[in-house]
Amino acid sequence: MKYICLGYIEPNKVEAMSETERNAMVDECVAYDDELRKKGHFAGGEALQGPQTATTLRWKSGKVSITDGPYAETKEQIGGILVLETRDLNHAIQLMSKHPGVKAGPFEIRPAADLSEMIRESEQRRAGGKAKSKRP
């Protein structure tokens, strides 16, 4: 089962750290990710640049509006995502509880949604639509 772990950080807290502290934290996180990789639990992941680099697309009055930044500035911001491959939720909780990143901010763990059925139905609909349009 795939779980997506959204890792939140508090930028103020990270900025307040000394360089040595920050390096130690990064090293621990990288080492733990490697461990997850070795055991086959790390199914992907990316760190995110700061919210000031974000661009939001939103459907507004019949067209896409482009705005700067995320919708709301909050104390905690998503710092990265990690895709975990585990047996079940307990296993995911167990692995992420040991992740040093949990000390920098909370992890939100959500099971990945299986869209294959939805995609298959959509394909059927689209194929059916084509067949229909061919008819006079």
């Binding site: 089962m1 047996r87 079940d88 939720l89 307990n90 296993h91 167990q94 959500r110 099971p111």
Partner: peptide, 14 residues
């Protein structure tokens, strides 16, 4: 069901 919370007794350390 969705998050797959397992039907089990926790391990001794938990």
């Amino acid at each position: 069901r969705a998050a797959r919370i397992p039907y089990q007794v926790p391990a001794p350390e938990e």
